[in-house]
């Protein structure tokens, strides 16, 4: 909803006076810039905007925004943001988190915020590594990752954040990457418009501890052949000439095929609003990692009652039914008796 009285702002108005302290070359800079440039276009007020973060490199984000902000504790940002969003439905609440923060220590809060459909926008900066603690593997690192804590290679199967969010009943699930400002901004805009919990995974390069993790799919020369843009209502095709398409095999598996071979009518048409998340889930499994053609864009965007709104409705219904709370009546609600005075 656009408020016409919202003062016009520029990128500068959304930047705080604090010096940005990420490593030179960090992907976080481009995400920060994308958002600071987008916010003036969204018709929102700085005082009604809140950024909540946990712990990690990404979690410093709120300090750089000239908005309200809370840099909290490891993994808990979705829970803290839930309390804020349900008591203050008038606010735009953003959660900025990383792969360790959201998927390791905070995994529980993430999935519950998503299933409740709390009105928050979650930006998950996924660089597949622990940056702030200097280079241990993360829950999204590939198996066999050699780091200081896994000198013989990591053993853990990584999470696929999009699959996880879909499994957690998320109503809005999208992926973007830090090398494409326009795509980020379009994705953030869509996430912001969504009523309820919006989940955006951002492939973000950590040039110090995991440089080039996404290079094979996000590099300028590779993108056309390695990123599969999801566009609602359009056949899912990619390649410089749109020569590849995603089709469903007879075994029900999604796979990539040359459009010329299979015919464009066999190419899946993307439907963000499909109630059943099954196909979105299958799309999230198309690539085994950021080294194979990978879908980006909005996987899912469906409507479900927003949690805070539903909570507010219950309060209003209770007030309609019982009238506003009367403390004296409450204290007497268990039955009373009178002791006449004066005391004997």
């Amino acid at each position: 909803m656009t408020d016409l009285a919202v003062p016009t702002t520029t990128r500068k108005d959304w930047a705080s006076d604090q010096e940005v302290r990420w490593c030179p070359g960090c992907g976080d800079y481009s995400i920060l810039a994308a958002l600071q440039m987008l916010l003036p276009e969204l018709g929102v007020r700085r005082e009604n905007t809140v950024f909540v973060s946990g712990i990690g490199c990404a979690a410093r984000f709120p300090y750089y925004m000239q908005t309200y902000g809370m840099h909290t504790i490891h993994g808990r940002a979705p829970a803290i943001a839930t309390g804020l969003a349900v008591t203050r439905p008038d606010l735009d609440v953003w959660v900025v988190t990383g792969d360790g923060d959201a998927l390791s220590i905070g995994g529980n809060h993430l999935i519950h915020a998503l299933r409740r459909n709390v009105n928050i926008t979650i930006l998950l900066f996924n660089n597949q590594i622990y940056g702030l603690t200097k280079g241990q593997y993360s829950p999204t690192s590939e198996v066999g990752k050699v780091t200081k804590s896994t000198p013989f290679g990591s053993l853990d199967t990584p999470f696929n954040p999009i699959s996880l969010a879909l499994g957690a009943e998320a109503t809005f699930v999208a992926r973007t990457h830090d090398m494409d400002r326009k795509h980020m901004q379009e994705t953030f805009r869509r996430a912001h418009e969504h009523r309820g919990a919006a989940f955006v995974e951002i492939y973000q390069n950590c040039n110090v501890f995991n440089d080039g993790a996404f290079e094979r799919i996000t590099g300028r020369d590779q993108r056309a052949d390695m990123l599969i843009p999801l566009v609602h209502g359009q056949p899912i095709v990619f390649g410089a000439e749109g020569q590849y398409g995603v089709v469903m095999g007879e075994d029900g598996q999604l796979r990539i095929a040359p459009v010329a071979e299979v015919g464009v009518e066999r190419v899946l048409v993307h439907d963000e609003h499909r109630d059943d998340p099954g196909l979105a889930f299958a799309l999230s499994r198309l690539a085994r990692g950021p080294f194979e053609p990978t879908p980006i864009g909005v996987f899912r965007d469906v409507e479900r009652p927003e949690y805070g709104e539903a909570m507010t409705r219950q309060l209003l219904e209770a007030q309609e039914r019982r009238g506003p709370g009367d403390l004296a009546a409450l204290l007497a609600s268990g039955g009373t008796w009178e002791v006449p005075g004066p005391a004997h």
Partner: peptide
């Protein structure tokens, strides 16, 4: 809440918002 930590976390978030 989903756990004890989320219970207090949400209360802190609500407090930030003026509750």
């Amino acid at each position: 809440a989903e756990d004890e930590i989320a219970g207090i976390g949400a209360a802190i978030g609500a407090a930030f918002g003026g509750a």
